Amino acid sequence: QGDIVVALYPYDGIHPDDLSFKKGEKMKVLEEHGEWWKAKSLLTKKEGFIPSNYVAKLN
């Protein structure tokens, strides 16, 4: 089961498979690959890669 993270900063995706998000948006982490994680937005239901240093895990 994936962790839920919250965006600390907004992110505008650079690549087509990036997931753009707004500050405060919550996402479910699907896979962790070093600095880039695959996640699904709980708001938009879209999936893509996010920079892990832009988010914090919720406990």
Score class of each variant (00 low, 15 high):
residue 57 K to Y: 14
residue 44 T to L: 03
residue 32 E to C: 14
residue 5 V to C: 11
residue 50 I to E: 01
residue 45 K to C: 15
residue 23 K to F: 07
residue 47 E to I: 14
residue 53 N to L: 10
residue 43 L to H: 10
residue 7 A to I: 02
residue 27 M to K: 00
residue 40 K to W: 10
residue 51 P to S: 03
residue 51 P to Q: 04
residue 23 K to L: 08
residue 18 D to E: 15
residue 4 I to G: 03
residue 9 Y to F: 12
residue 24 G to C: 10
residue 46 K to W: 05
residue 15 H to C: 13
residue 15 H to L: 09
residue 9 Y to V: 07
residue 56 A to R: 13
residue 56 A to Q: 13
residue 30 L to G: 03
residue 26 K to C: 13
residue 29 V to H: 01
residue 37 W to C: 09
residue 51 P to D: 03
residue 58 L to A: 07
residue 51 P to N: 05
residue 42 L to C: 13
residue 24 G to T: 02
residue 38 K to R: 13
residue 39 A to Y: 01
residue 4 I to D: 04
residue 10 P to Y: 07
residue 48 G to Q: 00
residue 26 K to W: 15
residue 42 L to I: 07
residue 7 A to Y: 01
residue 11 Y to G: 01
residue 13 G to Y: 02
residue 34 G to E: 05
residue 56 A to G: 07
residue 29 V to M: 06
residue 38 K to M: 12
residue 3 D to M: 15
residue 34 G to R: 06
residue 1 Q to R: 12
residue 16 P to R: 08
residue 6 V to H: 04
residue 1 Q to M: 13
residue 26 K to Y: 15
residue 13 G to L: 03
residue 49 F to S: 06
residue 59 N to Y: 11
residue 1 Q to L: 14
residue 31 E to T: 08
residue 8 L to E: 03
residue 49 F to G: 04
residue 43 L to T: 11
residue 24 G to F: 06
residue 2 G to I: 10
residue 12 D to I: 15
residue 25 E to W: 04
residue 20 S to I: 06
residue 13 G to H: 03
residue 49 F to H: 06
residue 51 P to H: 05
residue 26 K to S: 07
residue 47 E to P: 02
residue 6 V to K: 04
residue 4 I to H: 05
residue 13 G to N: 04
residue 30 L to H: 04
residue 10 P to W: 08
residue 19 L to Y: 02
residue 41 S to Y: 03
residue 55 V to H: 01
residue 4 I to N: 03
residue 3 D to P: 10
residue 5 V to S: 02
residue 58 L to C: 12
residue 51 P to L: 05
residue 32 E to Q: 13
residue 19 L to N: 01
residue 20 S to M: 06
residue 51 P to T: 01
residue 3 D to T: 15
residue 10 P to C: 11
residue 9 Y to T: 06
residue 9 Y to R: 14
residue 48 G to T: 00
residue 14 I to Y: 10
residue 42 L to E: 06
residue 3 D to S: 14
residue 32 E to A: 15
residue 10 P to K: 12
residue 43 L to I: 10
residue 20 S to C: 08
residue 8 L to A: 03
residue 55 V to Q: 00
residue 21 F to V: 06
residue 19 L to G: 00
residue 53 N to Y: 10
residue 56 A to P: 01
residue 7 A to R: 00
residue 33 H to V: 10
residue 19 L to P: 01
residue 21 F to H: 00
residue 44 T to I: 01
residue 22 K to M: 11
residue 33 H to G: 10
residue 59 N to W: 10
residue 46 K to I: 07
residue 43 L to P: 02
residue 50 I to S: 00
residue 38 K to I: 11
residue 17 D to V: 06
residue 33 H to M: 10
residue 7 A to M: 02
residue 11 Y to R: 06
residue 18 D to L: 09
residue 7 A to W: 01
residue 58 L to I: 13
residue 5 V to I: 07
residue 9 Y to P: 00
residue 11 Y to I: 03
residue 34 G to A: 06
residue 58 L to F: 10
residue 59 N to A: 13
residue 26 K to A: 08
residue 55 V to A: 05
residue 52 S to M: 11
residue 31 E to I: 10
residue 20 S to R: 06
residue 57 K to R: 14
residue 16 P to M: 08
residue 57 K to I: 10
residue 23 K to S: 08
residue 56 A to V: 15
residue 50 I to F: 06
residue 45 K to I: 05
residue 37 W to E: 02
residue 32 E to W: 11
residue 49 F to I: 08
residue 52 S to Q: 10
residue 48 G to M: 00
residue 8 L to Y: 03
residue 53 N to S: 15
residue 39 A to L: 06
residue 40 K to C: 13
residue 42 L to P: 02
residue 7 A to V: 02
residue 44 T to W: 02
residue 50 I to Q: 01
residue 43 L to N: 08
residue 13 G to A: 14
residue 37 W to V: 09
residue 43 L to F: 09
residue 35 E to M: 14
residue 18 D to F: 14
residue 53 N to Q: 12
residue 57 K to P: 12
residue 27 M to L: 12
residue 18 D to W: 10
residue 59 N to V: 12
residue 10 P to R: 13
residue 39 A to T: 05
residue 50 I to Y: 01
residue 12 D to M: 13
residue 21 F to Q: 01
residue 31 E to D: 08
residue 9 Y to C: 14
residue 31 E to G: 08
residue 10 P to S: 15
residue 31 E to H: 08
residue 39 A to Q: 00
residue 18 D to K: 10
residue 54 Y to D: 01
residue 1 Q to N: 12
residue 5 V to R: 02
residue 4 I to L: 09
residue 13 G to K: 07
